[in-house]
Design a protein around this nucleic acid. Structure first.
Length: 206
DNA sequence: GACAAGATTGACT
DNA sequence: GTCAATCTTGTCC
């Protein structure tokens, strides 16, 4: 475990709502493919009706109750994979959904898995898209993202100060929709839904 | 064992 | 803008 990884683990071992904006700018790597995280959503655990962890641990969600920095992958609508970073202290449920990344490495290798992508900004501009682009699937669930030997891992970004962040309501859920727990890099073209109504108007900047 | 719902995407009108 | 695809998980009987 490197010093940078330890620092990142400490960042993640907080409430997802606090850790989520700090994930922006960090690089998500899967083998030779890598992308900078530009959009995330926070999901608290048992206090959040929209979270899969609401209602207690199950076989599927157990990893969310484990130590921070692990990967939680689930299938959405039977078709797409969605990747989450486990947050919060060990024993406390919480996760941050990665909604979009900006491809920065191994872009050529992403195209075969994203044949329908219209442009590079469309390669990973969505939860299901980024998993396809990076080759993340169910088998990766539970891996330690901070272990250099993992097939999928996080690498501290170069933006020491962190990019400008805007906040808005979460997307695609039917419960607790009023919580403005979606965070994105301001103005980045790789976010899944650029500037939706109300996005950023009452958000938190840092 | 059966059924309903879902943190999405892409095609079609 | 609207809608279907597709399948895993959790709940209920």
């Amino acid at each position: 475990m490197t010093e940078a990884a330890e620092r990142l683990r400490a960042v993640l071992a907080r409430r997802p709502l606090e850790a989520a904006p700090d994930l922006l700018g960090i690089v998500l790597r899967a083998g030779a493919r890598a992308g900078r995280i530009v959009e995330v959503e926070a999901y608290e655990g048992q206090d959040d009706p929209a979270s899969h962890a609401f209602g207690g641990p199950t076989d599927r969600t157990r990893v969310m109750f484990g130590p921070a920095g692990h990967l939680y992958v689930y299938r959405s609508y039977g078709i797409h994979w969605c990747a989450n970073v486990v947050c919060h202290a060990d024993g406390m449920a919480g996760a941050v959904l990665i909604r979009a990344v900006e491809p920065i490495e191994g872009v050529e290798a992403m195209w075969p898995d994203r044949p329908k992508a219209a442009s590079v900004t469309d390669l990973a501009s969505g939860p299901g898209k980024l998993c396809a682009a990076l080759g993340i699937e169910g088998g990766h669930g539970g891996v330690d993202l901070l272990d250099p030997g993992s097939p999928v891992r996080l690498e501290a970004g170069l933006d020491a100060d962190g990019p400008p962040v805007v906040a808005g309501p979460r997307v695609g859920i039917t419960k607790a929709v009023d919580r403005r727990w979606r965070f994105a890099v301001d103005g980045n073209p790789h976010v899944s839904r650029p500037r939706p109504p109300g996005f950023g108007t009452a958000g938190r900047r840092r």
